[in-house]
Design a binder for these strands. Structure first.
Lengths: 337, 337
DNA sequence: AGTGTCTACTGAACCGGATAAGTGACGTGA
DNA sequence: TCACGTCACTTATCCGGTTCAGTAGACACT
């Protein structure tokens, strides 16, 4: 089956290719009557502009890219990325943009993917996730002048637009809440220590604990997997002065931590309160349901997509704060025994 | 920054554009010495062929598409798709293919996406998931002659290649195992009833229960969400002859079911045995860890990608069975009290 | 030397859109 | 009535690859 082209439309409408192009793109240069006739024919024969031809003649590729740098075993269970992708899609689909996905192993490979996409003209812009300190990807994106929106921060992206949520504020809220319940020994199981938002959270956690005069503010680094989250929990709970509350940097680790506590015969929340960062259905599924720092990840993604599309359109896009998490208390937090 | 083109390479090598194209694509028509010189220059200046130009001149777009038809709230927690995508990527990246993703609301919209992708020449082939009975997408793909691989089955795809796992065998194994433990009242919380693999499982479940002379073989349809899985479990457990074992069509519902059982004061596995279909880290995280029907979803995806790439290359691709689930016993199954 | 064959290339057409430049018809004002 | 401007188009060129039809030169064979 042959794909219809503007030449086919031109022939049927008795006009030239150029006229068809003007008509379909809403450009001046054709009468309103002709435009409507051409649009009608295009719809009738199911015309879709060849994206390659369009991209080749200087217009945009109508696609944006997302690289994900996480091992498969984390990806499969981590709800964050799928939520983000759902949010992207809502905005992109409305504008007729496609999303190109690539899973990579290291940030260095991510750079290679960016260079290739740029050279191939495959995407008009990219989403950048998992921002690190002195991130190696940033200078490359600047050099290539590839429109980008960094999801994470704040800071560290130079001239590249970013969207970030106020993680420091969120963790402060969580700690204050636990302290109000009467907790004095609060620990935290953090995410990958290289990631900028992990550092932001760690710093803010230390600051608020110090400000409130808490005994200690231990953050155990981890890698977002359930196994590591469970191991970290076990280490925290076998100590002499075991914490009465633990904040986890994602929901998967929090669920694992809950299982470890129960396995060790501790009652949640009586003996141990648990707070999860990011609220997925997972948190409501377990027993007791987990108190969580909730945010609308899909909306966060949609916001990022709007930013990126604006950047692709050549608009200057600033940094915005959006989707800051707020505490959703559930059954896993209570005053300590 | 200007993107290097084959014309740049041609100029520097002192040959024509055509020679460069032959050299870079491993075509005959240039001497080995010249080829190496051209390849060296291309690498030196960081050349990447413009994908639009390549696609426009009849070569492939070097991209394949995946549409996902699930609401965002399920997607974010459902580990299956991310596992599948990871598997796709491994194969696609090795061949330099990009993966284009689109999340849609209905199968009808999926058809529109296929038509658009085909018209835009944006992808060389597509993955089809969530096969239904008399699936409306199949005739469209045949009409467009768009290379495709259906993930699911068996059957119902006409001439289109498919990859399927032996769900009937897997559920039979699970039921036999439970019966061997002494269970006589086994229920099942199924997935979306429209999906072909749900029907396959339902039929096989009924067959094996009848063959083993079990009292009843109730399958409660559901939608893969934790809420629905929990509700279905509650309905099953308040009945007079409550089941002593429940098989769930995905892990999220199984975890929700576990929480409901515990909330109702039932001990797992003493009062109720639980089997989850698809084994994600989630199953090992909860307490007790869930007995699951495990399969390597990433490998399943990689296999599907190999099939699709072969189809894109014009090879005829048959139907293959792969990645059949096998039972991984854990703490959630035991003889009934 | 003449003929044929092969290799290693060149030149040009082509893919399907976007777009700048050109053209003819028509209306308008002096 | 003629010059001029505007509108509604057409024509031609371009984007950057792929590919086909040529062609020059080397070499072998008679």
């Amino acid at each position: 089956m042959k794909r219809p082209t503007i030449a086919d439309i031109a022939q049927r409408a008795g006009v030239s290719k150029g006229a068809v192009s003007y008509a379909l793109n809403g450009q001046p240069g054709v009468s309103e009557a002709t435009r409507q006739r051409i649009v009608a024919i295009a719809r009738e024969i199911g015309f879709n502009a060849n994206s390659a031809a369009r991209a080749l003649s200087g217009a945009s590729a109508r696609a944006v890219g997302l690289t994900i740098c996480r091992p498969a075993r984390i990806l499969s269970i981590e709800p964050f990325f799928m939520g983000l992708i759902s949010g992207f899609e809502a905005e992109l689909a409305a504008r007729g943009f496609a999303l190109t996905l690539q899973v990579v192993a290291t940030p260095e490979l991510e750079i290679e993917v960016y260079r290739r996409w740029w050279g191939e003209r495959r995407v008009d812009g990219v989403f950048v996730t998992d921002l690190r300190e002195d991130d190696v990807r940033i200078p490359v994106l600047q050099e290539l002048q590839l429109p980008a929106v960094v999801i994470g921060g704040p800071g560290g992206t130079g001239s590249i637009a970013q969207i970030w949520s106020n993680d420091a504020g969120a963790i402060t809220e969580a700690v204050r809440y636990l302290v109000a319940l009467g907790h004095r020994r609060i620990a935290r199981v953090g995410g990958l220590p290289d990631l900028l938002h992990t550092r932001t959270r760690t710093t803010a956690f230390g600051d608020v604990c110090r400000a409130l005069g808490l005994d200690e503010a231990v953050t155990t680094p981890s890698d977002y997997t359930g196994e590591e989250g469970g191991r970290a929990t076990r280490r925290l709970l076998i100590g002499a002065d075991r914490p009465t509350a633990i904040i986890y940097d994602n929901d998967v680790m929090a669920v694992a931590g809950l299982a470890v506590a129960q396995e060790m015969g501790l009652a949640v929340p009586a003996d141990l309160s648990i707070v999860a960062w990011d609220d997925s259905p997972l948190c409501s599924l377990v027993h007791p349901p987990l108190t969580a720092l909730s945010r609308d990840i899909a909306e966060y993604g949609a916001h990022a997509a709007r930013q990126l599309l604006a950047a692709v359109d050549g608009k200057t896009v600033g940094n915005v704060e959006a989707g800051t998490a707020h505490l959703t208390p559930r059954g896993s937090t209570a005053p300590p025994r």
